[in-house]
Amino acid sequence: MKTDQLIDMLSTNLEPIKEGRLKKTLVWALVVGGAAAFCLMLTTVGLRTGVAEDFLPGYLALKLLFTLSLIGVGAALLERLMRPGQDGRKLFAFVFLPFFIVVCAGVASLVFGQPMAWGRMIFGMQWATCLLCIPLFAVVPFVALIWALRKGAPTNLTRTGAIAGLVAGALGATAYAFHCPDDSVPFIAIWYGTLVGLCGAIGAMIGPRLLRW
């Protein structure tokens, strides 16, 4: 085939492109993925019980602050990573910031807390449920995000996969936070932090295979 032939073919009956289509796709994936994770939480473990008695909304807010800040930075990064020539290098460092802050806060609250209470602060009541639920709730968001990213043209597939995994993990953790009965900062740092990070690592591993174009 001659290249001129191809150029003729590509420019015949050219369709105009609407701006902002790509961003809309990404937002859709986040909304659908988040809603799916939340529904899965409602139908499996359910909302946190005993809300009236010993519920401390401060801790739910803290968990959401961690997960939502990750989702925010991650989504902004994905919007750049799905476009060739924009690697979002400046923004990339901010991904680590929520992890850093939550780990510092966790260590501080252990240091200032009673050593007797450390076990309960770290393992809480339901560490095993947390361990299962966050990755499980992250599956649908991850699939939705990969679907959206494939509509773009990511050129750094490992990094894009990692951020997609991280955002999916954070969406899973957001859903789980509405069930989570464990109110301690070390618990958030260890379990939320590690599991969301793990989702990112899995995304980095399988991203290149899923995102190739």
Partner: peptide
């Protein structure tokens, strides 16, 4: 061509 919508 097929990815031209990714150009900002």
């Amino acid at each position: 061509h097929t990815r031209r919508h990714t150009y900002d």
